[in-house]
Design a protein around this nucleic acid. Sequence first.
DNA 1: AATGAATGAGCGTTCATTCAT
DNA 2: CATGAATGAACGCTCATTCAT
Lengths: 190, 190, 190, 190
Amino acid sequence: MAKTETRNHIIRTAADLFYENGINQTGINEVIKQSGIAKATLYAHFSSKDELIKAYISYKDKELMIAISEFLAPLPSGKKKLLGVLEFVKEFYHGGSFNGCWCVRSMAEIPVSNTAMRKYISDSKRKFLDYLIDLVKDGFPGLSKSKVNTRAEALYLFYESSVSESYLHNEEWPITRNIELLKQYLKNVN
Amino acid sequence: MAKTETRNHIIRTAADLFYENGINQTGINEVIKQSGIAKATLYAHFSSKDELIKAYISYKDKELMIAISEFLAPLPSGKKKLLGVLEFVKEFYHGGSFNGCWCVRSMAEIPVSNTAMRKYISDSKRKFLDYLIDLVKDGFPGLSKSKVNTRAEALYLFYESSVSESYLHNEEWPITRNIELLKQYLKNVN
Amino acid sequence: MAKTETRNHIIRTAADLFYENGINQTGINEVIKQSGIAKATLYAHFSSKDELIKAYISYKDKELMIAISEFLAPLPSGKKKLLGVLEFVKEFYHGGSFNGCWCVRSMAEIPVSNTAMRKYISDSKRKFLDYLIDLVKDGFPGLSKSKVNTRAEALYLFYESSVSESYLHNEEWPITRNIELLKQYLKNVN
Amino acid sequence: MAKTETRNHIIRTAADLFYENGINQTGINEVIKQSGIAKATLYAHFSSKDELIKAYISYKDKELMIAISEFLAPLPSGKKKLLGVLEFVKEFYHGGSFNGCWCVRSMAEIPVSNTAMRKYISDSKRKFLDYLIDLVKDGFPGLSKSKVNTRAEALYLFYESSVSESYLHNEEWPITRNIELLKQYLKNVN
DNA sequence: AATGAATGAGCGTTCATTCAT
DNA sequence: CATGAATGAACGCTCATTCAT
């Protein structure tokens, strides 16, 4: 197997386990067993579990960006597209492998002393906010930068609580309630 | 020392450690060292770490209810009081010992297989939602039960993302942005 | 409760637990919980767990002597009575609370370093052998002391392997086989 | 060191300790200290202490089979060979490392709830009985299957009480007495 | 005489990581 | 480049026993 392939294989296997059971509940042994590789092979590709966790976070983020972009592609730019972001969450929630936000959950598992990792995770979420900023910018050309940011941050917050609270309660209402809130919000912005 | 005192002493010590560093990063050894008690003493009061975690969750919840109630007491009923809930988060955030939501973070650390504990935590959050429902009910007498719930759920979601996102990014803007969103939301409800 | 009553109550409770589950598998806490007494009360009556174990051994031995004597009482002296000893084992085995020999099992749980306890247990078995010697002496008056001993030791060995092996295999055949062996043995002694 | 070598090294070390002091009196820490290996190494080879105990039982059984076979090899088939089994016990008893029957003693230390382990141990003894059955079958060709079993079971019971009782009393007489009983028994079978 | 909270050494087990091959 | 046996610190938990009341 080529080096990159092995690496990706490990990441995908680890991602499934980390996202399903949490990063601390998933041991290195479990990852190598599921991957079918040797322990030292894993350490040849990732110098530590932390590095593997970072790769997991990035992998899930990229996967999300692709999925959400595909979901939004057919929707018209503007308010419909922004609402689409929360509609995506609803679909995600019912998709069968929903386990909330990997960033929020991973952050909870990282020791406070591990500032590097904590920064990596919050930076990761920041990138998602940037993605939403672009979405607003594209959907509302001419809108002032300040208003773009405000609108994107609002959308981000609706998105985040949809994901986290539907996961926390294992119920759909946080998503539908946030959709209503977003609709009302968008009605009141020019 | 009376039994109840020792028990409370352990809970308070454990709560500080759990909330600061997470429940999995905090070992029983750390708890007893900080408490200045013997290991068997802890196990005389709590049959397992899980029981101590439950006591921690309940302790933090009660503490929160008291603090938020005191904070809201001087505010006039109605919209001012609901906004006060988010103003409380802002104060909480700057209070020096802010580490996000213990429920959200603990949920992320509990294995999926531990359904009893997961239920305990989500039930705990549900109680907080009930608290907000009462707050809305009291502040808007005559409002239909359905509208009370809708309004309380909205407030709950604003509260939750204020706490979680300010913790995640270690920045204040999620709180201020949510306050703006809540203000706008309340403007549009009768 | 009078002191002796309390003491006997503890012994009986402990005996049931020790014989059912083994002396090491039964904690002091279990004994006091089942007895309904305080921990310090137990230690007022028995200076250590070892002392309680000794009391358990003696209690079971006495109980056995009484039971076996009652069982043998109606039988005619001589060979019939000796055979009765093994018939007693058969009844004991089917009695519902059979768990082999407390001495053999306890000996296995005592550290080799605890010579005092080990001597106590083997002395205890020696007393049972003495009981069988008396049985032979009474049943075969005029028999030389040497022959009495030989015959009693044979009976003792048949008895012991009946108890131990039926317990080990959880099957009855070791008892019935030993009964056959004893019958044949007795046929060949004058 | 090759994996199998390490495994065998652990088993031999554990066997000495388990047989000398009992399985519950011997902690994992003692085993690794004596073995000179790390704790995780032990758990890489044995998933639990129970697995190590099983390996110990099997190891001792195999060792016994080999030793007894070697001891019996020069003896002529038939009654001489059967008597040899008890002569072997006498030699075993005086060998310096005699501590009774590992199966009987281990059974006494295993919680009643651990049915899997208890079955493992009694199966182990059953194999020894099968060994004796073969011995009788080979020594008395043409003997009916039923008589073979009866004779082997008798031999088994003599063997067992020789081992257990000489251990219990730390005296030789149970062995010599059983030898006499076996001789007499064999005189009366065709 | 009786209480029960507190003890500290020990238990079996799991972890991410290293290194000789 | 890949292997897998070995590591040692930490984990959650149990034990018989003591002592102030």
